[in-house]
Amino acid sequence: MSENNPSAMDYAEHEKTYAGFIAFSKIGAITSINVVLCLLIFGLGSGYSILAGWVALLATIVAAVIGCALGQKGWIPSAYAFGLAGLLAVLTVA
């Protein structure tokens, strides 16, 4: 046996890993919704929809990278990118 108490676990490290998983899941979910919104802009838009779709997609990628670096509050840049993509979708699809 390596220790006298084999059931001792590092709960602090487990909680830190779980918090990171939840933060990454939030970023991933919002980014996936943004990509679908970008596809909507590309597919249904007219006029400047190609440009608007690329701007929204680039903003989504940049926001996801920044969000991964921020940690717990990492979903906020992706939410701003979602707002931008939503605005561009309303302007180009309508």
Rank of each mutant, 00 (worst) to 15 (best):
S2P: 05
Y18G: 09
A64Q: 05
G47S: 02
L84C: 07
A79S: 13
Y80F: 14
A81M: 03
M9C: 11
T31Y: 12
E3W: 05
L51N: 06
L70I: 15
G71P: 04
A69L: 15
G67K: 01
A64S: 14
I76P: 08
I27W: 05
A85E: 08
S46M: 05
N5P: 02
N4K: 09
A89G: 01
S32W: 02
F82R: 05
G45F: 00
Q72E: 15
L57C: 09
A59P: 01
V65M: 11
V62K: 09
L39G: 12
I22G: 10
V62T: 12
I66S: 12
K16Y: 09
I41D: 06
A81G: 07
A64I: 03
I27R: 05
A69H: 14
L88C: 09
G71Q: 01
I76S: 06
T60G: 06
T92H: 00
E3Q: 08
G53R: 00
C38T: 08
C68K: 12
A12E: 15
W75T: 10
N34S: 04
G71N: 03
I27T: 05
L40R: 04
I61S: 09
V36Q: 03
L51D: 07
W54D: 11
F24A: 15
C38Q: 01
G53Y: 00
A12F: 04
G47T: 00
S7G: 08
Y48S: 04
L84V: 12
G43T: 11
K73W: 13
F42P: 06
C38F: 01
F82D: 12
S25C: 08
G47N: 02
K73H: 13
G86F: 01
V65N: 08
A12H: 10
P6M: 04
M1S: 14
S7L: 14
Y48M: 02
S78D: 09
L44C: 13
P77S: 08
N5W: 03
A59T: 08
L40I: 05
A52L: 03
I66Q: 13
E3M: 08
A52Y: 05
D10E: 06
A8N: 11
Q72K: 15
L39Q: 10
I30A: 09
L84R: 03
K16P: 07
P6A: 06
W75D: 13
V90L: 11
Q72H: 12
V35M: 06
L58E: 12
F82E: 13
A19R: 11
C68P: 04
E15G: 07
S32R: 06
V55A: 13
Y11L: 10
L91Q: 10
E15T: 07
L40A: 09
